[in-house]
């Protein structure tokens, strides 16, 4: 076994960390025959002692009442709730638009001319139709409240409008087409 591969074990020996018996016997045998590794262990013992002194030399910090007061003021400030940055909301909206585009393209392919597909025909014709749940929404927390955002999607056959239902966390839950 090479000395380099034993380095972590040698450091455990220097730190006084117990090795498993078989490994310990192997390392001990190696140390008896290798002056370089023995010197390495001695130096690492010196490092341990020096680090111990360094830990003891660090003054114990005293909590500063002024800082604690500032922290308590931050504590009393209105909570931000779950961290949902504008970027997250924007990305969510972008993802929902991509899904809406994909659905609309698929729908147009299924119903090329005059035929309404059986899947959600009326939903695309009336603003009163229910929303279609997005596949990703099932993994999200329960919908409590939110907002409907109308988006316009460019398409070869003219712009398509859709309503995206965004939940309390800013993530899209459902969509419906409007024309």
């Amino acid at each position: 076994m090479t000395c380099r591969r034993l380095q972590a074990d040698l450091i455990d020996v220097a730190r006084g960390t117990a090795l498993d018996p078989a490994r310990g016997a192997l390392v001990e045998k190696h140390l008896r025959g290798c002056a370089m590794c023995a010197a390495f262990v001695e130096r690492q013992r010196a490092i341990s002692a020096a680090l111990h002194r360094l830990a003891g030399a660090q003054p114990v910090p005293v909590p500063d009442p002024g800082r604690l007061n500032r922290l308590l003021a931050a504590f009393d400030a209105p909570r931000r709730g779950p961290e949902r940055s504008m970027i997250t909301v924007g990305l969510s909206l972008a993802a929902s638009i991509v899904i809406v585009v994909s659905l609309s393209v698929a729908w147009r392919r299924v119903a090329p001319s005059g035929h309404q597909p059986n899947t959600m025909p009326s939903a695309t014709r009336s603003g009163d139709e229910p929303f279609v749940l997005l596949p990703s929404a099932s993994a999200l927390p329960r919908f409590e409240h939110g907002a409907v955002i109308r988006v316009e999607i460019p398409s070869p056959n003219g712009a398509i409008q859709a309503d995206v239902l965004v939940g309390q966390d800013g993530l899209a839950r459902a969509v419906r087409f409007v024309e």
């Binding site: 008896r32 010196a46 020096a50």
Partner: peptide, 12 residues
């Protein structure tokens, strides 16, 4: 060097 000198104590 801030480390104490290394003494090579070899066990036999």
């Amino acid at each position: 060097c801030p480390m104490p000198p290394v003494s090579l104590s070899r066990t036999t």
